[in-house]
Design a protein around this nucleic acid. Structure first.
Lengths: 141, 141
DNA sequence: TTTATTGCTTGCAAATTGCAAGTTGTCACT
DNA sequence: AGTGACAACTTGCAATTTGCAAGCAATAAA
């Protein structure tokens, strides 16, 4: 209930997208989902950026409301919740890749896996397909 | 003096990029620079999202510090300041395009120029080259 | 039946945002 | 030279959001 719907500032897709994704944490959660295959609340807390539990909770709720992730109890352990990407979420892979390419090109000191960067530059579509496939394969239902 | 350097949370390029770009306004300013060819402070204020002057001022300062835009007095009118993209800023075009594609695909009610979306899907590299060229041509120095 | 784990919520101080109003340095006109 | 308008900001302040720490309920493990 902390997060309200917040009416749109304009009909521009950049603006609308930013109202959901435009903060310092949301795309980091998506990075973890896409590239690090994280699925549990606790896993996101362990990333080096040290997101706080209330922020993570809020962001996951927003992402769920936006149909970018789904939430379900882990069938093997009722204490755990599994967060998974939807098709809409998987379609953010290209955006994340551009962020990685730009950041690793221009921000000195950043460390992306070099083979990921190389692959993103030389075989973008193949990499995207592979990341999708890996998610769908590992996901299970 | 309002904006401090803020030390990095991690060496991840996504995280580092988000520390600069991850808010609801910065990429909107870049949208205006790239797609709407805006150059003056006043122009950005007229966008439908209605950015406040203090926020715009702060964001332009951040972007200048990050070497994404440059600032210079308008040679034709000393009252005006011209903001222009650097090479680093132009290299954010692909990121913006992905944001537009994703937003216009998944967020109903968004309105991007349909020919831009079509071009972005069918001739991405050509569109990027054209946007760059248009900026460099119209820019003058 | 204690103890630990997991996924949260709650309180509260600090930082950021957003609105309105003011300030400074040009022009533009007379 | 004086007046008014304009462009690019800054400043004040209330409201919202963030971030840290602590607490809590529901399992599960020992």
């Amino acid at each position: 209930m902390t997060d309200s719907p917040s009416q749109r500032r304009s009909a521009c897709p950049v603006s609308v997208s930013l109202e959901l994704l435009g903060d310092r944490w949301t795309l980091l959660v998506l990075r973890d989902l896409i590239f690090l295959r994280k699925r549990h609340f606790r896993d996101f807390l362990e990333s080096p950026e040290r997101i706080a539990t209330n922020i993570l909770s809020s962001r996951l709720r927003n992402l769920e409301q936006a149909a970018i992730v789904t939430r379900r109890p882990d069938p093997d352990n009722a204490r755990q919740v599994i967060y998974e990407l939807t098709a809409k979420g998987l379609d953010l892979i290209p955006l994340l890749l551009e962020l990685i390419l730009w950041g690793s090109r221009y921000e000195p000191g950043t460390q992306a896996p070099p083979e990921l960067v190389k692959r993103a530059r030389e075989d973008r579509d193949g990499l995207i397909a592979e990341l999708r496939a890996a998610f769908l394969a590992g996901g299970d239902g």
